[in-house]
Computed example of a mutant assay.
Amino acid sequence: MTAPPNDPAGAGRWSDLDRPPLSATALRRALIGHDGPWTSLEVTGSTGSTNADLVAAARAGTVSPGAVLVAEEQTAGRGRLDRGWSAPARSGIFLSVLLAPEPPPERWGWLPLLAGVATATALSRAAGVDTALKWPNDLLVTVEGEERKAGGILAERTETADGAAAVVLGIGVNVTLAARELPVPTAGSLRLADATVTDRDPLLRALLRSLAEWYGRWNDADGDAGAAGVQQAYVAGCATLGRPVAAQLPGGDELRGDATALDGDGRLVIVNGDGERHAVGAGDIVHLRTRRDDSG
């Protein structure tokens, strides 16, 4: 028996009919050349990291800004703080895009937050799952009454072969993972969150169209997240705001307090027990339970 013609892995792994392979041809037809930012789209069967592959391709000059790289399987995917990200083949959406933003680089810190808004918006509409944002770049769904991480975003600055500055934006979403397949008990998936749609093709199309729309608004506003509506949308969908948090800061320090706002640079504003305001631009955030949470 030969592999299906649109199985980029060429491995003929058709045993799980709930996880059909993506068709690069169909995706290109739907997404390339429609007045959007996407200039090329490739689907690879298995790779270590789509971000690493696209960074290397950008530096080598073999792809142009607007390139999209999708993997059926990532074996060495990375999240923030170099954390691993892995899942069974064809069980999720694993993609990276190469962008050459027009706004000044000091505003590029909004890109992972923008991607979060775009992804959450797309999944809420296309999969019928309420998707919340955990600052700065986690995607949360509710599974059996608990917040679970179902996806994440990673932005890496790089440069093209001609030395121009660029950004590779990676997005990973768990789609059909069952409970037994989760990498950690606190993870989730769209299926476990009772998604109405788990077909990756329409979900991927919706995600890339949503990303194109929000990226276009931000570019048109010269990176002003407020004028583009990105800041307001992120605040509206952010599960971190309005609750007590612990921020693990670079260098090992910890800051505890209430997450109260998102400033104009996309930083999380935390007010500590002494009423002091701290704007956090980088760190690992832990949502703390309140007494009300503990009492049910």
Rank of each mutant, 00 (worst) to 15 (best):
T44D: 13
S49N: 02
G48H: 00
H34M: 03
L81S: 11
T75F: 09
D35E: 14
E42A: 15
G36I: 01
L54D: 04
V43M: 06
P37R: 15
A57G: 04
V70K: 09
T47N: 01
T62C: 06
E72P: 02
R59Q: 15
W85L: 08
P37A: 14
T39W: 02
P37M: 14
G36P: 07
E72V: 06
W38H: 04
R78P: 06
R83G: 10
E73G: 01
P65T: 03
D35V: 08
E72W: 09
V55D: 08
R80C: 11
G77E: 00
T62H: 07
S49I: 05
R83L: 07
A57K: 04
A71T: 12
G61H: 05
E42Y: 04
A67E: 11
L41A: 02
G61M: 03
L41N: 02
T62R: 10
P65H: 02
V70Y: 10
G45S: 13
L54A: 05
A57I: 05
V43E: 03
E72H: 13
V55K: 12
N51L: 11
H34Q: 14
L41I: 07
G36E: 07
R59C: 00
T39R: 15
V63Q: 09
T62Y: 04
T39N: 10
V68D: 11
R83D: 05
L54F: 08
V68Y: 12
A67M: 13
A60R: 12
E42N: 14
R80G: 14
N51R: 09
S86H: 14
E72F: 11
R59P: 00
G45H: 09
R78M: 08
A57F: 02
T62D: 05
H34E: 13
P65Q: 08
A57V: 09
A52W: 07
V68F: 11
D35A: 15
G61S: 10
G79F: 02
A60M: 10
G79M: 01
G61V: 08
G45C: 03
T47H: 00
V63H: 01
